[in-house]
Each structure stands twice: as C-alpha cells, then as structure tokens.
Design a protein around this nucleic acid. Structure first.
Length: 472
RNA sequence: GCCCCCAUCGUCUAGUGGCCUAGGACACCACCCUUUCAAGGUGGCGGCACGGGUUCGAAUCCCGUUGGGGGUGCCA
C-alpha cells in the first residue's frame, strides 16, 4: 500500500510546449525525485484530428531541455492514451453493467432545448430511467449520485461540491469513443498513479473524476491543483495572444537553468531571501503544501533578469560553450570563414555581462568578423552631427599611426589626450571612433576591441568613415 | 446565470496570532563607479482590497462585501 508515489504529466500533443505545462511538469518531477517516486509521461493523444506524431518528440525534447530526462530512472514512459482505448471502453461497460452509467439518445441540441424549457443549465437526466441499450449515436452518461463529493486537495484543502449541480456527464461519445474525464481516470488507475498534480483549471473536473474512481472501486489519488499562469490582463496564458512556447524561449537564448528556476518561483518560493537557487535546492525543499493559491503573472522582465544572472554566473569557458549555437546559422551576419574563434574568446568575457539573452550575442561582436561594420544610420548621423566628432576621427588616424604600443591602455590614453585638446572628455571623444569601428554607439569596451582588431584594420575603418563623411 | 477557487508593494513572493514601524526579488527613480552600453555598489519609491467580528493583541482566525480568476462541451 505504501509503495513509492507515482506522479504523472499528461499533456496532449498540440504543437508546442506551453510554459504552464513546463511548470506543472517541473512540480511533478521535483516531487517524484525527492520522494523516490516515479514520473510517468502519458501523451493524451485521443483527439485524433488535432494530433501529430512529431509533436510527441517535441514534448520529449522540451522536457529534456528542462532537465526531465527519459534516461533518468525516475522517468517512465511515454505511454500513449490512444493505446489504452479498449481499457477505457471496458471500464465504461462495467459502469453501465453496474448501473452507474446509462445510455442517452438525446443530441446536443435536444439537451440544450430541454435546458431552456427547464430554465436550468445542463443535462437534466432525461434518460436516467429509460433503460436504453448501447446503440450508435447514443452517448453513455455517468449517473451522478445524490449527496456531495468532497475533494481533498493538497494545495487547496477540503473542497465540497453538491452533486445536484453536477450533471450526468458523458463518458462515451455517440461514436463509442471515450471522453477525457473517463480516459484520464482509467489511465491513472492502470498506471497506478498515486498523485495527480495539475493546473487549477481541472479542479471543477475533479469531483466528476473522483466519482469515477469510486464507481470503479478504486481509492482516488492525492489531488493537488496548482494555480494557473496568467498574462498582464490576468487571463490564463493563451497560445493565441501570449508568448508561451518553451521552444521559442530556448531558441532566443534563455538558459534552461534560468527558465527552470524562474518557473519554480511562480507560486512557490525557496526558503530565505534568495530566489536564484540550484535545482538541488528545489528538489530538496519543494512542497505542494507551500504552493500559493493565486494565479501568477508570467513576467518576461523577471525571467530576463534571471537569465542575465545565470549568464553572468557562468565561467568564461562555460559562457563560450553556451555561445556556440548562437555564433552560426542564419541569424549571424558573418560567414563561417569570417568568424575568428580567437577574437571571440578574447571578447567573450566582455560580452558576458552585456547579455540578457544569448541571441543578443551576434550584434555585440559582429564588427570583429565583418569586413565592414554594419552601420546604424541613427547612431551615425547623431554622432557625426558635430564638427568636433568629425575632427576626432582625423585626430585618431594621426595619433594611431605614430607607432604607439598597440594595447588598450595606450589607445585609451591616446584618445584621451586628443580629446582633451578639443575640450572633450573621454566619453565624448571615443564616440566617433566607436561608431566608425563598430557602426553603433553602444557595444563592448572600445579600446579592448581596437587592440583585438589590430592596427591595420582599425586604420582602414577610420579612413573609410572619413571617406563616407566626405561623400555625404 | 450557476458552481468552484483566490485576495500582502505595479509584478513574483516571505509571513501561519505578538519577533511586522510587514522582509526579499523584478521593474522604476536617484547617486556612486565608468570608455559607450552593461555589470557592480549605495539609497529611494511602493503593499496587508473594504467592512464587521473573535482576541489583551490580527496581514495572520471567522462572517460579509467588493474585486479577480477558473469551470460550466458528444475539447483536453
């Protein structure tokens, strides 16, 4: 009886992995790990019209990205709901034979009409005692008993539902296929699930499912309904309006550790005053009893902040490693031949503190690899609107060509002196050089970049800028 | 409409009757540092929805109000 707990995550494959689903999965995973239990993945693929086989791989990949790995002994599955259809139907037949379910030949429209006449919402139990047998077009409905159903929920406590407000819900469709409510319970029984941890939107389903567990002679599992994630309008996160695809966050350069950590702090907080904590802490301390009861806003800004923290927390080598996927491909303005690994490694620590997401990396370092910098017109016109700025370029060309030691300190001193001669502080004096070299007003530290690029390339760019100015 | 859930700074939260003059984080603002931008440092802004109880004492317990959310399918 007191065997190890079995949790489950039961997504339906609908195209991409929702961040809300990710959090639910993480909650289940943390618990399964800490309690020495099992995390069962069940793909609820019964809505055939909407399902695609490749989505399943997407779910497995997404789970793996957030640390829920198939090769971990805690992981079990995936199971496919569609393969258990017979068990669902057997269970339905059993309920029918036990008198706990009955067939009804009313169409959806007819049900609505009757509801209108009755002045009451929902199905009115019309066929309860008509003794109908199974036939095409007839749905099987659960016979909701009198009384009340009490759901004991680990996060919400005791929740009571009066059975009279629960209609005799459908178990089997007119075509004989099982509905979610039934299939879900039967699978949980089959897979010996002991803990159902899912989003709050399922709470109203729970009394119905608990009645099915009871009717099937099973002891219902431990329920836990965690609050939903909402957008700034405080509505449930929706695929249509909101950015919710885990894959998209991954591709934009959010670190999985940051995402995992952030997701865990939505509705729960680690002990003490720090919220950036390693997974080991989460696994050790996470408890459903401590989960908040209110919906949580999925705040992109805070996620970004977590991501920045995680990026900066990496060693330089780890950062270089993590950079690799963002240094090649279509999103990068340079060709593979132009890329210079050595220069990148030298620039990496300077780039590291300047990133919120990894995908911002190319624009920070592209000038190092391209023949010509990508000129941002606004930066250019703003910077070179003053005569001083133009002259600074000539000053720099002259000064850099005097055979000075080509390191960042000397270069800095050199520009400082030239600026002083024009009454410009270093901040002002370096601006035109920066734009001429990098094409932008903002970027990594300039003199370090100049040192890296070397005398010849720097001179070329400065002269090109002067020419461009003359032409304009 | 009906059912259910919820209610601490703008946001995420700590807080389980006295430690609360309510703590932290994000965001925002100011200052410092500074080679632009970041990062970092220091400081600031800002909250217990409201009304009744219970209690010597309430953010914490009870009731109501208001406000949010979820559900109400032959979707999952």
């Amino acid at each position: 009886m007191s065997s190890s707990p079995r949790f489950r995550f039961a997504p339906s494959p609908t195209g991409f992995f929702h961040v809300g689903g990710a959090r639910t999965a993480l909650y289940n995973w943390a618990l399964a790990k800490r309690l020495g239990g099992t995390f069962v993945l069940r793909i609820e693929d019964t809505d055939e019209a909407r399902n695609q086989p490749e989505w399943t791989q997407g779910i497995i990949d997404a789970l793996s990205w957030i640390g829920i790995r198939q090769d971990d002994p805690t992981f079990e599955g995936p199971y496919f709901q569609s393969e258990y259809a017979q068990a669902h139907i057997d269970a339905a037949n059993r309920l029918f034979e036990q008198g706990q379910a009955y067939y009804c030949d009313l169409t959806g429209e007819q049900v609505q009409e009757r509801a209108k006449i009755n002045g009451k919402q929902g199905y009115d139990g019309y066929s309860r005692d008509r003794g109908l047998e199974a036939a095409p077009g007839r749905v099987l409905r659960f016979r909701v008993p009198e009384g009340q159903t009490v759901v004991n929920d680990l996060v919400r406590g005791r929740v009571e539902f009066a059975n009279e407000v629960i209609e005799d819900f459908v178990l089997l469709r007119g075509n004989g296929s099982p509905m979610f409510l039934l299939a879900n319970v039967v699978d949980d029984i089959t897979m010996r699930i002991s803990h159902v941890v899912r989003a709050e939107e399922h709470l109203p389903n729970t009394p119905k499912q608990q009645m099915i567990w009871d009717a099937l002679g099973q002891q219902s599992p431990v329920w836990a309904h965690v609050p939903v994630l909402v957008n700034e309008q405080r509505k449930k996160l929706s695929k249509r309006r909101d950015k919710v695809a885990l894959e998209q966050f991954r591709d934009e350069g959010f670190l999985s550790e940051a995402m995992i950590n952030y997701l865990m702090t939505l509705g729960w907080a680690p002990a003490g005053d720090v919220e950036i904590v390693p997974w080991s802490t989460v696994e050790r301390d996470f408890r459903l009893e401590d989960v908040n009861h209110s919906p949580a806003f999925f705040d992109l800004k805070k996620l970004a902040s977590f991501n920045g923290e995680y990026i900066r927390a990496m060693s330089v080598n780890e950062f270089i490693q993590a950079s690799q996927p963002f240094l090649t491909g279509d999103n990068v303005p340079w060709t593979p031949a132009q890329f210079d690994e050595e220069k990148f490694r030298a620039m990496a620590p300077l780039a590291q503190t300047r990133l919120v997401v990894m995908s911002e990396l190319p624009e920070l370092v592209d000038f190092l690899f391209l023949d010509e910098p990508i000129i941002d017109e606004q930066s250019w016109s703003k910077t070179f609107s003053s005569a001083d700025a133009v002259e600074m370029l000539n000053d720099a060309i002259a000064a850099f060509d005097t055979g000075l030691t080509w390191d960042h300190d000397s270069l800095k001193l050199c520009v400082e002196v030239a600026g002083l001669a024009r009454g410009l502080k270093l901040g002002k004096a370096q601006a035109p050089i920066r734009v001429a070299i990098t094409g932008r007003t903002i970027g990594p530290p300039l003199f370090e970049a100049l040192e890296l690029m070397g005398h010849d390339q720097v001179m070329r760019r400065l002269r090109a800028a002067v020419e461009r100015l003359a032409g304009a």
